[in-house]
Every structure is written in C-alpha cells, then in structure tokens.
Simulated assay, not measured.
Amino acid sequence: MKIAVIAHLKYPIAQPFSGGLEMHTHFLACALQARGHAVTLFASKGSQATCRVEAVCPPTGIALDDVSEARIDAQEHAAYAAIMDAVARGGFDLVHNNSLHPLPLLRAPELRVPMVTALHTPPFEPFVRGVKARADDMPFAVVSESLAEEWKPFLRETRLIGNGIDLDAFAYQPKASGQRHAIWTGRLVPEKGPHLAIDAARAAGLPLVFAGPVSNAAYWSEEILPRLGPDVTYLGHLSHRELAQRVGEAHVAICTPRWEEPFGLVVAEAIACGTPVAAFSRGAIPDILDGSCGALALADDVEGLGRAIRVAVELDRHACRRRAEHLFDANTMTDRYEALYRAEILRFATLRVGKASRPACAEGGLPAELFDDA
C-alpha cells in the first residue's frame, strides 16, 4: 500500500523521543516501510525515519517566549491544511491519522481515500469536534480499554489496538546492575509527576535516577531542582538505546501519572527489560501491570507508592519479560493495523462502487490480497 502517516506537530518524530506518542509514530511508520509499504510521514521539522519524511513546520510544542498561543494555533492550522493538500495530491491508498488536531478529520471526505484515526489521548477540544464529525464514517482505534471508555460519549464503536514496543530494543536483562536503585523516565512536566517519584523513592529508601526532556522550565525550577541530592541523579534526555540500557539496569521503575494515563509506554518498556514497576493506579496502568510484574498505589499517595516500590523490587524479572512478550510485541500491533487498513480499504471501495458482494468488488479491480484476513 501507499500510506500517508500524519503525525502531531508538537515535537519532532525523532530520537531522543519527547514522549511515547513520538516513539510510537516513529516505530509504526518505519515498521510499515520495512514490510514493503510506501510510507510518507508528515511531521514537524527535525523528524527522521526510514520512510519518506515531509517536514511541514517547526515543532509547535517547543515554547518560545515571544510566540502567542493564537499564533501557534494559526501555525498548526496552516500546517495541517498544507498536509491535507499534499495528501490529496499524493495518490495514497490509505491515511493513518496520528495527529491531535481536528483539521485532518474535518477534511477527510475531500481525500476520496480511506482514513484510519488512532486515539492516543482522552477527549479534549477542539479535537473532539473533529472526531464527532467522522464518528459514523471512519474507523477509530484506541490504545487501551480505559481510553475506549473515555471516548464512549462520542464514539459508538472503537477498535482496541494496544501500543507495542520493540522487544529487541528493550532487551531483557535478567539481573539489575550496581547498587539497588529505582528509575523514572518521561517528560519532566507536572502531569507526569516526577517530583512525586523522587519523594516516593526516598520514602522507600532507594536512590533514584531519572531521565527525560525538561519540557517545563518553571516546573523544573520549582519542583525538581529543590529535590535533587546525592540520592537523586538526573541522567539527561537519553537516546533510545541509552534509555533501554538504564531501565534494564534498574531494580525497579517508578511511574507517577497525575492524569488518567491512556496507555503508559514507559511501563511496558520497563517490564520488557525485566524491571518491575511501582505505579499510581490511573488510566490504563492497571491493565498493563499485574501482581507478577508490578505493584500499584492510589493516585498521588506518595507513602503508598513507597510501599509499592518495596514490594515491586522483589518481583521476578523473568515474569516481567513474559508479560511484555505476551501483551506488547510491536509486530502484533503492526499486524493489527495492517488488518484494519485492509478491512477499511475494502469497505471504502465497496461503498464507492455501491456493491456489497465480494465478487463485484473483485471484478472492479481490487487486488486479491485486500481480502486476506479482512
């Protein structure tokens, strides 16, 4: 297939990844290209992938003091309009929409090719406006059951396709390394709660190392810097390879979302390395972790999380890896998206020719492989 992948424009789709959505988009585009599809990734400047990349604007999530929100909104709107114009001219067979903007959804009927949209966040405006406009004529994939529940007021039906990770990149490490310690990874922003991870690690009596981009300078200055000390080490914004190595070396990983986490890739990455996880019980995290690979605490309960850390650090690392292999193999995720693409291309073609039978569609010239597994 010739596939257009539309990314969000907040951060580049490139290493070191700003977050889980950037990593997911990069992996999916590259995996589809490796499977023989002709993929074009529409993303912000600085994006890199093994497929063709069309960079349309500077990253809009990198705050500049002299740029207003209204100007950023206008920049994003113009960029997505340019993307949709390019997609309409590009002769694509299918569009995979990974953006967080309503415009690709609102303009989808102009393309005259099928579009699949993956939902990675809870509902928010104005994105909801675009989703509601396409609720009856486009398939929507969600990354977790908890996220499906949040979208129920707007969508009668969604397809559950959980995020996958590269199990080779996040390789199993049967033994942790060095002094017993904990790790936290992610964007350093209030909604990820790294300051609570520092407090909880201290409550558990473990040193903490943490890594990720400083995405909120005020939060760093007010909440993180005052907590640094000999038992808390900032590793910087690590490459994919360095991150996997550090996570695998840790005795326990900590996850502290302060919102209903739609998935939690950092949790899946940790258990793939064999590192058990202590986390707040929010969003999809209870679906990822069970008692074999993690321990949960109530949301924002630092003392409870400290107790969960002491439990998790004793769990079996091989059991962690087994669960990751069972639930989060990126090859399985890619298989499911390909099956959804085939089914949607077939449905879209059937609607266009106005015939519902398979023989009629086949006579219309559709390639036979579209019917496999559809």
Results as ranks from 00 to 15, higher is better:
residue 1 M to D: 02
residue 7 A to C: 12
residue 8 H to Q: 14
residue 9 L to G: 14
residue 11 Y to E: 14
residue 18 S to M: 08
residue 25 T to S: 05
residue 26 H to V: 04
residue 27 F to G: 04
residue 30 C to N: 10
residue 31 A to H: 13
residue 31 A to W: 11
residue 36 G to N: 05
residue 39 V to N: 00
residue 40 T to C: 01
residue 42 F to E: 00
residue 50 T to P: 11
residue 63 A to S: 13
residue 64 L to V: 08
residue 67 V to Y: 03
residue 67 V to C: 13
residue 71 R to W: 07
residue 79 A to P: 04
residue 83 I to H: 03
residue 83 I to Y: 01
residue 85 D to G: 13
residue 87 V to H: 00
residue 87 V to F: 03
residue 89 R to V: 15
residue 92 F to K: 04
residue 98 N to V: 07
residue 102 P to H: 09
residue 109 P to C: 12
residue 114 P to N: 05
residue 116 V to L: 15
residue 123 P to W: 02
residue 126 P to A: 15
residue 128 V to L: 01
residue 130 G to T: 03
residue 131 V to T: 00
residue 133 A to Q: 04
residue 139 P to D: 04
residue 141 A to Y: 07
residue 145 E to Y: 00
residue 147 L to M: 06
residue 147 L to H: 02
residue 148 A to W: 04
residue 150 E to V: 05
residue 153 P to L: 05
residue 154 F to Y: 12
residue 154 F to C: 03
residue 154 F to N: 05
residue 156 R to S: 08
residue 163 N to Q: 01
residue 170 F to K: 06
residue 174 P to N: 14
residue 175 K to N: 14
residue 177 S to I: 15
residue 178 G to D: 07
residue 180 R to Y: 01
residue 183 I to S: 10
residue 188 L to G: 13
residue 188 L to A: 14
residue 193 G to K: 04
residue 199 D to P: 03
residue 207 P to E: 01
residue 213 P to A: 15
residue 218 A to L: 11
residue 220 W to D: 02
residue 221 S to F: 10
residue 223 E to M: 14
residue 223 E to Y: 13
residue 226 P to G: 10
residue 233 T to W: 06
residue 233 T to G: 05
residue 235 L to G: 03
residue 238 L to F: 02
residue 239 S to K: 07
residue 240 H to Y: 09
residue 242 E to Y: 11
residue 243 L to I: 09
residue 245 Q to L: 14
residue 255 C to V: 15
residue 257 P to R: 04
residue 257 P to G: 07
residue 261 E to V: 10
residue 267 V to M: 00
residue 269 E to Q: 15
residue 270 A to T: 09
residue 271 I to K: 14
residue 271 I to Q: 09
residue 274 G to M: 08
residue 288 I to D: 00
residue 293 C to R: 07
residue 298 L to G: 15
residue 300 D to L: 06
residue 301 D to T: 05
residue 303 E to Q: 14
residue 305 L to Q: 08
residue 310 R to W: 01
residue 311 V to D: 02
residue 315 L to G: 01
residue 322 R to G: 06
residue 322 R to V: 12
residue 326 H to I: 08
residue 327 L to D: 09
residue 329 D to L: 02
residue 331 N to F: 00
residue 336 R to E: 04
residue 337 Y to V: 05
residue 338 E to A: 06
residue 344 E to N: 11
residue 350 T to P: 11
residue 351 L to Q: 10
residue 351 L to A: 08
residue 351 L to N: 02
residue 351 L to P: 04
residue 353 V to W: 08
residue 356 A to T: 07
residue 361 C to A: 13
residue 363 E to V: 09
residue 366 L to V: 11
